[in-house]
Design a protein around this nucleic acid. Structure first.
Length: 595
RNA sequence: GCCGAUGUAGCUCAGUCGGUAGAGCAAUCCCUUCGUAAGGGAUGGGUCGUCGGUUCGAUUCCGACCAUCGGCUCCA
């Protein structure tokens, strides 16, 4: 796809800033070997090899000052084409470049492009193998900043050497740089870890362990509201709720293929009485055994099971963090056992449930969907018949087209047993987060020997459709916190109504109102503290409580409440309302499409 | 797991170039009874992440470990 000129300019800016960084770093750290340095969405980075020495953020001012000198010198960047042989000669000191040259040659390139920065007789000079594009000269880089250092494996393979990486950002003006930095600061305020603590939704304990979030009463309310909602929708669609244990014999997962592919990720449980179990890493194998518990007819299909249970994965310690990656995940998971003819409609049904659910939360765009297919070069990563895979992938492609999803194809992202339709969201800082998924699976049922009796009286394996609508409650909570900045829709708010007595003369009236609202299934709290009314309002605002009902002598006398909504701009006051009116109002906004 | 950074009161953070620590908010108590985003005062609260080493003495220096954060890798 062709890029808009603006994108190209932007690309060139980042790329040039990176070459400036390279040149500066080379001057400051003799012996530094650059590996690569591409522009990326958020800026640019440079991977390099510097033997024993480490560059740390403390070195940034020094490097940035050197970069500024190169920019101030306004040095030209010139593109040249050279032959592969010449390139080998030019970069003979740098094995990484030689590797790249080999790779490009293998891909059929005969001439390679290089960029020269400055000129050899000047203080600042650099020559690098590079496709471009670049700005005309370094002076066009008007604003930049180095942001992070990190380690990164050479060629992204953890078997390779770890290189050092410096991240930076570059902009056409100082103003845009500052705006970008301010935006990052804003986004950090939405971080679910921060808001989760402020709003008292979940916590961690060093005693319990990392990656094991504890849901507080408020966080639990959100989880249960989500669960109630999704189960209602799915029940209407024909799902039946099941419960399965968190343990199983390892044979279950040997049969499913999980032990082979995810051996390192299994938690094993033993007892002094010679028990040997594993904690379930997925729900599907357990659910297959409910299907297998009796004889099924084609007339029974589709059979749909759902459950919201914990599952456990022994992730690499460095990978866990916040709620997005944990050891114990509460997964909202469901499986449909279908006939071949039913699969397509089933997948469509699941996608439309997902689309409805997220659209209602203002969290849907057709372009966020992706088709996760096989890595065709590595068939050993998957189970099942390649012919079935082909059929599954074709089927998902058709679904995406017929439902007008603007889905991109991600090769290599498929599940162990089949391709998927995934939906990818972005968190506050733009990091991708995958939650809902629909997967077609021809393999599992066959491996478990599942069958139903078809209309000809033959034993036939069903096709399984795996689907997660909420995905994991942990990730879902993280996503919702960041999406709403903690100001949840009324139906999800842990406290829907905060009642604020003006003075403690009014506590009795406040309590009376509270009990009426509680009877109406509205979550309400009365602030009985002896702080001032203003201070109570402030607390409720910080907690992002949707409704504040302020009650003083006036309201008590007239049997009314003064209604205030949470807002930033202090325009929250609605005014005095009859008590019955406010109940109606809250009821209306509790339904999920409102507010 | 790998690279790097961080860890001081419930929270946000200051501080100690080695002589065992301080603020604001929160909490408790007292005064205040308030009209739409912080009323005032007093009090309590920390083996300065854990363990070990160096030292007359370590929260501070060194080491290991634990936890958190940013990346890499991985993600059924």
């Amino acid at each position: 796809m062709d890029k808009a000129p603006q994108d190209n300019k932007n690309e060139a800016l980042k790329h040039t800033a990176e070459h400036v960084l390279h040149t500066a770093a080379q001057n400051l750290y003799p012996g530094l070997k650059k590996v690569m340095g591409p522009p990326i969405e958020s800026g640019f980075y440079m991977d390099f090899d510097l033997k024993e020495q480490n560059i740390t953020p403390d070195d940034f001012p020094k490097i940035e000052a050197e970069m500024q000198k190169i920019i101030d010198a306004d040095l030209p960047l010139k593109r040249k084409e050279i032959t592969v042989e010449k390139a080998r000669e030019l970069f003979k000191e740098n094995q990484y470049k030689l590797d790249t040259i080999d790779k490009l040659e293998k891909e059929g390139e005969q001439n390679l492009s290089i960029y020269e920065l400055g000129s050899p007789e000047k203080k600042y000079y650099d020559i690098d193998l590079c496709k471009g594009p670049h700005l005309e000269s370094t002076g066009e880089v008007k604003a930049f900043k180095l942001t992070e250092v990190a380690g990164a494996y050479y060629l992204g393979d953890e078997k390779n050497k770890m290189l050092q990486r410096i991240y930076g950002v570059a902009f056409p003006s100082e103003k845009e740089l500052n705006e970008h930095l301010a935006l990052i600061e804003e986004a950090k305020k939405r971080d679910h870890r921060k808001i989760g603590q402020q709003l008292d939704l979940f916590c961690f304990s060093e005693l319990v362990g990392p990656g094991l979030p504890l849901f507080t009463p408020k966080g639990t309310i959100i989880k249960e509201e989500l669960q109630k909602h999704v189960e209602k929708v799915c029940r209407e669609y024909g799902f039946k709720k099941v419960m399965t244990p968190h343990l199983a014999k390892i044979e279950l997962f040997e049969l499913s293929g999980h032990t082979k592919k995810f051996n390192q990720e299994l938690f094993r449980v033993t007892s002094p009485r010679d028990h040997e179990f594993v904690m379930k890493p997925v729900q599907c194998p357990h659910q297959t055994q409910i299907f297998a518990s009796k004889l099924r007819s084609y007339k029974d299909l589709p059979i749909r099971y759902m459950e919201s249970e914990k599952q456990y994965r022994a992730e690499k310690p460095g990978e866990i963090g916040g709620l997005n990656r944990v050891y114990a995940i509460t997964v909202e998971d469901g499986h449909s056992f279908c006939t071949l003819e039913q699969v397509k409609d089933e997948v469509k049904g699941m996608v439309s449930i997902i689309r409805d659910f997220y659209s209602a939360l203002d969290l849907w765009d057709d372009s966020w969907t992706s088709l996760s297919f096989r890595d065709y070069a590595r068939p050993e990563k998957y189970i099942g018949d390649p012919k079935d895979w082909e059929q599954c992938e074709k089927l998902l492609k058709e679904v995406a087209e017929e439902m007008h999803l603007d889905a991109i194809v991600n090769e290599g992202e498929a599940a162990l047993y089949g391709p998927k339709i995934d939906v990818l969201f972005k968190d506050a800082l733009g990091k991708e987060i995958q939650i809902p998924t629909v997967q077609v699976d021809f393999a599992t049922a066959k491996r478990f020997g599942l069958y139903y009796i078809d209309e000809n009286g033959q034993k036939t394996p069903p096709v399984m459709v795996h689907r997660a609508i909420l995905g994991s409650y942990e990730r879902m909570l993280a996503l919702l916190i960041e999406h709403f900045s903690g100001a949840f829709p009324v139906w999800l708010s842990p406290v829907q109504v905060q009642i604020i007595p003006v003075s403690d003369r009014n506590i009795d009236y406040a309590t009376k109102i509270a009990s009426v609202l509680t009877n109406e299934d509205i979550r309400v709290e009365v602030d009985k503290s002896d702080s001032t009314m203003q201070s109570k309002i402030r607390d409720a605002q910080i907690q992002k409580t949707p409704y504040m009902l302020i009650v003083g002598d006036k309201e008590e006398k007239e049997n009314t409440v003064s209604v205030r909504l949470r807002t930033e701009e202090d325009k929250g006051v609605i005014g005095i309302e009859e008590f019955t009116d406010i109940i109606t109002r809250i009821y209306l906004t509790k339904s999920m499409n409102l507010w």
